[in-house]
Design a protein around this nucleic acid. Structure first.
Length: 629
RNA sequence: GGGGACGUAGCUCAGUCGGUAGAGCAGGAGAUUUUUAAUCUUCUGGUCGUGGGUUCGAGUCCCGCCGUCCUCACCA
């Protein structure tokens, strides 16, 4: 049916072309955006506006359409006798518009402002221009896209139909702009540091790993810009910042994305307390500017950014919510005993004291922190890049800003002592060697930079996606990312979904993978091979119970069924199975070329399945002619 | 990875107790001299995610798989 829509609309496009309309005009001269035009006086003449048709009401003589762009919408009226000087030409233009322009097409209109009988400001068209065709069926016009999956996969559908989504992204843009302007005013310089790195440094997280072909070396995508920005302080910058796209190869949930935007800045000569004061001022300013208020509604609760944000030590909040005074337990064993005594269950109770504190905090206190709160005094061994506190060397001079249980900002007085830093990184490297994927690597290049001298520094990082989601009452970070990463529809992780075209010459090809066993079906189309889904190709439980033979029987049966449906011939290919089993199957295609087939298979073993199929295509073609001959 | 929920027309959604798959929007044809979710006539559109099981009969009950979300775990 999508095909029907497309055919109808393609037909209309052809009709437009036949009527002398360019299907993809080069440009259109606007005098006003739709929002600007909507603010005009009703007497203004000679406006030219353009946008997407999101509503069309054809009254016979008059066609009313609503045009929309990102920031506004405006009604336009096309009357049968007003579209050209010549009445016949005007009628022709009217009919063309009425019959050939569909919802979601782009058009431009030239005309005069006026008010309709019902009082709506409207453009009375004196002429119209076709600007672009929508070939796909548009979403429901009033309700829009409600399926979150669809909204994420095809954001344009969401943005066109859902005003609240446009509002969220408008806020995101406005907030970033406000932050940039505020930092620039404060004497910061915006910089850019590498995304492709040798070491995953600056945070505790598992990186994405890739390979640099020309240099023939592994590279990782950055998990934080921190150590590069601090190198710039070594270089003499006082205040630097970067909106840094970062990548962490870890689990995802509504408050974590693999690919996210972090703002980090570093200031020479500040400590974390200077930074906390600045944070409060900066965020209040930019929230007020971008949002127009400091009080937001989120999940039915009011969150208030005005007033002074409480500063509470980790010790305090844990004592309040868990009833344990961590200072009374100077070592891991003692603290562990207290936690057990309180009946709090930790995931990793064998960890050291710092990690125990962290787990305890996350388990008991963090979930209660709704209003903006600074959490200070974190254990030293969780912050390998932070400066130890002069008051208590077991803690670091660090703060986090927590809002509605989300950690939004993380900042500290930076560790600037290269000797201490080396010791801590060696410690981390030890953890890594012991199997902790998230421990930091020893970053000699950074240590070398540190040894060239650092002033006191305070650094700061904020999750842009998180603050935007908080401020816009978005339940999931993916609601504030234009194109969040999604598993592709289609071949990944399941049966391919392409359907065989009717009458197409085809071939059924089973790829018998060891685990899980599976039958893949392809269509052979000249030189090309496509995936084809024909329902379930995976052996059911019953077949699997009978072991290998049952599985083979199942796959053979499926292939035979496909052949009976006219899909074509059978060919099984086994991988990771005894050759004998394969050999037994191959007679279905003549039992020739086994060695060649296996060679090709192993050659393409690490390619995607579809590539395997392509690699086999030539072989299959050869096989065919051989059989025919 | 554990637990829970969901998947029906292009979109938004109904579908009762297991008994002939529905509505609105969108789309086709027609009508319509200012409409506002325009209206009216008429028509089209379905692998009920997928495969199996139970049953005389499955969108509905059971199981496997695929996909998505939530939650727990993981996670500066």
């Amino acid at each position: 049916m999508a095909q029907d829509y497309r055919q109808v609309r393609l037909g209309k496009l052809e009709d437009l072309v036949a009527a002398g309309v360019h299907p993809h005009p080069e440009r259109y001269e606007r005098t006003h955006t739709l929002a600007e035009a909507a603010a005009l006086d009703e007497t203004v003449r000679g406006v030219r506006v353009a946008g997407r048709v999101i509503a069309k009401r054809d009254m016979g003589k008059n066609v009313f359409v609503k045009l929309q762009d990102f920031d506004g919408a405006l009604q336009v009226m096309l009357a049968r006798d007003a579209l050209a000087e010549d009445p016949e030409e005007s009628a022709r233009q009217h009919k063309l518009f009425s019959k050939k322009v569909d919802l979601w097409d782009f058009v431009g209109v030239e005309g005069d402002m006026f008010r309709t009988r019902t009082g709506e400001l409207t453009v009375r068209a004196r002429g119209w221009s076709f600007l672009g065709k929508c070939l796909q069926p548009p979403p429901e016009k009033r309700l829009g896209i409600h399926d979150t999956e669809l909204a994420w996969r095809q954001r344009y559908l969401d943005l066109v139909t859902n005003p609240q989504s446009r509002e969220r992204f408008r806020l995101r843009t406005a907030l970033v702009r406000a932050i940039r302007a505020a930092l620039d005013r404060e004497g910061f310089q915006e910089v850019e540091t590498p995304v492709l790195c040798n070491k995953a440094s600056g945070a505790l997280a598992r990186p994405f790993v890739s390979h640099h072909n020309a240099l023939d070396m592994p590279v990782v995508l950055r998990i934080a810009p921190e150590t590069y920005l601090k190198r710039l302080i070594v270089a003499g910058y006082d205040r630097v910042y970067e909106f840094a796209r970062c990548f962490r190869n870890e689990g995802m949930d509504p408050s974590h994305l693999q690919d996210f935007t972090m703002l980090e800045y570093y200031v020479a000569y500040w400590n974390y307390e200077d930074n906390m004061r600045f944070t409060e001022r900066l965020l209040r300013e930019v929230i007020q500017e971008a949002l127009g208020t400091l009080r937001i509604e989120r999940g039915g609760r009011t969150i208030d950014f005005s007033g002074e944000w409480p500063r509470r030590s980790l010790r305090e909040v844990i004592e309040e919510h868990a009833g344990i005074d961590i200072d009374a337990h100077p070592d891991a064993d003692s603290l562990r005993a207290a936690i057990v005594a309180r009946g709090v269950e930790l995931e990793n109770p064998g960890a050291g004291r710092g990690s125990l504190i962290d787990q305890l905090y996350k388990k008991t206190a963090r979930g209660q922190l709704i209003q903006p709160t600074f959490i200070i005094r974190h254990p030293r061994d969780l912050s390998p890049l932070a400066r130890a506190s002069d008051d208590d060397p077991r803690t670091v001079d660090r703060f986090q800003l927590v809002v509605d249980t989300w950690e939004v900002v993380n900042a500290y007085s930076e560790l600037v002592d290269p000797i201490d830093q080396r010791e801590r990184l060696v410690e981390q490297a030890g953890l890594k060697a012991a199997g902790d994927d998230e421990a930091m690597e020893l970053d000699e290049d950074y240590l070398l930079a540190m040894e060239h001298g650092m002033p006191p520094i305070s650094g700061w990082g904020m999750g842009i996606d998180r603050i935007v989601a908080l401020l816009s009452d978005a339940p999931n970070l993916r609601d504030v990312v234009w194109f969040p990463l999604m598993k592709p529809l289609g071949n990944i992780g399941g049966a391919p979904r392409t359907v065989l075209w009717a009458g197409e010459e085809a071939l059924a090809l089973g790829l018998y993978l060891a685990d899980p066993p599976w039958l893949e079906v392809y269509a052979l189309d000249g030189e090309r091979v496509r995936h084809v889904s024909r329902g379930q190709q995976q052996p059911n439980k019953k077949a699997r119970k009978k072991g290998e033979e049952g599985v083979l029987a199942f796959l053979r049966e499926r292939a035979r069924a496909l052949a009976n449906e006219g899909i074509g011939r059978e060919l099984f290919v086994g991988e990771g199975r005894p050759l004998a089993a394969l050999h037994e199957l191959l007679p279905a295609v003549g039992g020739v070329g086994l060695a060649d087939l296996l060679a090709r298979l192993s050659e393409s073993k690490f390619l995607a399945v579809e590539n395997q199929a392509r690699a086999l295509a030539r072989y299959v073609a050869a096989l065919r002619s051989e059989v025919e001959a």
